[in-house]
Design a protein around this nucleic acid. Structure first.
Lengths: 339, 339
DNA sequence: TTGAAAGCGATACCAA
DNA sequence: TTGGTATCGCTTTCAA
């Protein structure tokens, strides 16, 4: 494997000049830089990460902590982060972290010592732990929070607009002609699903034609079983909604399940919309109309933010908030109501 | 952060001795080693990965390539690998790899150059690409294959016993008293699901009481929609199975869905069993009886194998095959048939 | 704008 | 069983 010395010889310059080109330092004549780049390509040169890290003290790794990597949300974010890091030449150092463990501070210290990252990404629900963030600040680790409930000082935030997305998907149902709309909410205390409920309500009120029916807003709690029960009680009588928006895709699938059990066909007799564009949205039949969270864009934004964050100084702790655009995915589970 | 020199001074020995302790070399007097370990603990010393990698040329990273990280199987393996690596002090360098891309060789070379791993783990379906394995051998990268269709020369294999697991879950249904058993197969060419079908058939034949009914063995193809159709045609007549074993959990969920639509209750009117213990197995209601793949054990085995693999020499290419025990997870979706 | 030399923190080789 | 010293590939410092 070629080293920086080989490149320097090939290009007829000093190693320092090669290093300058490698780090995009400005004070290199363009012609020289060109020659160096050609030499790199000719020798198929890749700089040694180990050597760079050793000497510079800074690592090309970004830390990412998961509390429950089997959760679909975290897994998808993980994947997106992997891709984004790989594209930007970073390394993703993922770790499992148990925030409820007695010795979590020690766990964290070990992770930091082993990986030597100086940037960290926290995904829900870890991103809402102020203690954890404080500990990271104490370790001088700059942090990006993904979709936190609130935006604390001293951390960057990357999020999507749950409220706006919920309005949009509700508007989609209204535009199809539905005026009898039900909603399955998420768990209490889950800020994103509170936003989704608000979006649902505001969309209906803004539209004017439909009415908010308190008994058609029920807890789905993000759980299949509870959602089936809620949907069944909502769909039981003759006076029932023609469309239901569930706060996530699992509970939307549960609505389809309940509808099937009651002899209602989706979407002919009942339109169903979900949220997240989780794998289940396209495994069930019919596939679910839903909101795709901008995982890829979030991951890219996070890498960009980290790239812009200086290694030290005041500016390191100036948090920015980025809100990324989601996408409505209309699929076969929603259609105009039967007249 | 403390360095090896600090530790050496604190312990009153040379750096080389500290290095020996660090690497568990045998030729250190136990008393000296003890003193060194005490010094390490006192100084809260963590060796610099960068320096170790730079000097030794070997990396503490294990590469893992995914073709589709959103697949549940790959995601769960990824998680398990993450935990196992973290426990064993390795780093997991995960990468997205597109085996169908024109320039896959270049992709691979870049991954290897950037990560400098000398051990790689391949998960399905990548683990069945002989070209990829050959390329890794050419790059001197020792490889562990997870659940490959066949065991090629020059790679370790870690797998589970799909055939035995299918027999076991079928025996579970037989033991409950079912004699009318249906099966939803996976896609053609998917070796694991062919094994599952064989296990199903052999269990029935060995039992003797039940009979194999060709028309109760239908393609589920691992897809919800197809599985719903297959289940509906199987359950349509009065002459229908009292239990169905689906080759994975998604299609087992589809069977529940179809049953609900036809007014059959699970498990009272129909027992349903799946395979994989995927998230959907516990999201749907009732939760599915299924087979848990030994992801954690596989990941640990993979790390152990890699730890035992020498860095060079003939022994590096002697493949071992490890078959790990699965677990039957009896849940509410199966019960004795109504008499 | 460019280069020479020192050194990051560990391991390897050879010597004691 | 132990220690001294060169060295891995790069960045940093200082000088030209």
């Amino acid at each position: 494997m070629a080293t920086i010395i080989d490149v320097a010889q090939q290009a007829g310059v000093s190693v320092k000049t090669v290093s300058r080109v490698l780090n995009n330092e400005s004070n290199v004549r363009e012609k020289t830089a060109e020659r160096v780049r050609a030499a790199m390509k000719a020798l198929d040169y890749t700089p040694s990460t180990a050597a760079r890290e050793l000497r510079s003290g800074r690592s090309r790794s970004i830390g990412m902590l998961f509390s429950d990597p089997s959760s679909g949300f975290q897994a998808r974010l993980h994947h997106a982060a992997l891709t984004a890091c790989s594209d930007a030449g970073y390394f993703l150092a993922a770790g499992i972290f148990d925030e409820t463990a007695e010795n979590w501070r020690r766990q964290l210290a070990e992770f930091l010592a082993r990986t030597r990252v100086d940037n960290m990404v926290l995904v829900p629900p870890l991103c809402d732990s102020d203690d954890l963030l404080q500990e990271l600040v104490d370790h001088e680790v700059a942090t990006v929070l993904i979709s936190p409930s609130h935006a604390p000082e001293g951390a960057h935030v990357v999020r999507m607009d749950d409220y706006g997305a919920a309005r949009e998907i509700t508007d989609h149902l209204l535009a199809l002609g539905h005026t009898r709309l039900g909603h399955l909410t998420g768990p209490k205390g889950h800020v994103a699903s509170a936003d989704r409920e608000r979006g649902f309500l505001d969309a209906i009120r803004a539209d004017g034609r439909a009415q908010v029916r308190e008994d058609w807003i029920r807890p789905g709690l993000f759980r299949f079983k509870e959602a089936v029960a809620a949907a069944e009680s909502m769909l039981g009588g003759v006076d029932r909604p023609t469309a239901i928006f569930a706060a996530n895709d699992e509970t939307a699938a549960a609505v389809c399940f309940a509808a099937g059990r009651m002899g209602l066909r989706v979407p002919d007799d009942l339109s169903v919309a979900g949220f997240d564009d989780a794998p289940i949205a396209t495994t069930v039949w019919p596939p679910l109309t839903t909101i795709a969270q901008p995982f890829d864009a979030m991951a890219e934004a996070m890498v960009t933010l980290i790239g812009e964050t200086p290694l030290q100084g005041e500016a390191r702790w100036c948090g920015k908030t980025l809100t990324l655009p989601h996408a409505l995915r209309p699929r076969a589970s929603t259609s105009a109501p039967a007249s």
